[in-house]
Amino acid sequence: MRVFHADLHIHTCLSPCAEREMSPSNIVRLAKERGLDVIAICDHNSAENVPATRRAAEKVELTVIGGMEITTQEEVHMLGLFADDSSLTAVQNLIYSHLPGENEPEIFGEQLVMDDEDRVINRHRRLLIGATDLTLDEVVQTIHNFGGIAIASHVDRPSFSVTSQLGFIPDGLGLDGIEVSSWSALPLPGDLPVICSSDAHRSGEIGTRCTRFLMKAPTLPEIGMALKRINDRRILTGQ
């Protein structure tokens, strides 16, 4: 067992609100520079830059977990992390079918899909910044149905968090954990596992906040065990 540093909430240039420098190879380079072992790519309602980021990390020791930051009907942001790409793609396609609207790049920003050498291969047309028509419960259930891990985004923030939108975390939601923007948000009410991540939209933010996991290997199943404190795996809370 050893300590792994994970930043499990990083946007790429596919998110309209992220800067263009959040390209696959830049993210990988900066994550390594800043001592991270694991990153998760979580763009708004899409996972199309996950494959390129994973390819960009092939020659270095860095685990790239595929994920999404899904916007529920209540405008709650929910991270879904997936161990296998077919599940991730299936959830992405389901989310697309519940996501109305077209992006207007000059208003909301560009939504760039890149290859692993940061060449633009597509400009995504859906309104990724919008909300799905799926309820919070439906989103958590969907993540779980596809074997994913559901973590409520930045619960310490005054917008788009389960706490800002719904006042408090509903009983029986079945979350695997909650994310804070800063360890100084602790202690929080309730007993859900807490992670801290950067929610990086700019390259300077990558790895500025992260979670230390004590576990056997830098993989999502190990992270799942650490969240549940199985076989001595656990989160080391704090900086």
């Binding site: 009907q73 800002s164 006042g167 408090f168 509903p170």
Partner: peptide, 22 residues
């Protein structure tokens, strides 16, 4: 809902589009 918790007053009729059980 966080705003309603902070600012609504007893006896108010609450107008909203949120349909969640919270």
């Amino acid at each position: 809902l966080s705003d309603v918790i902070a600012n609504a007053q007893e006896g108010d009729l609450w107008v909203t589009l949120q349909t969640h059980q919270n």
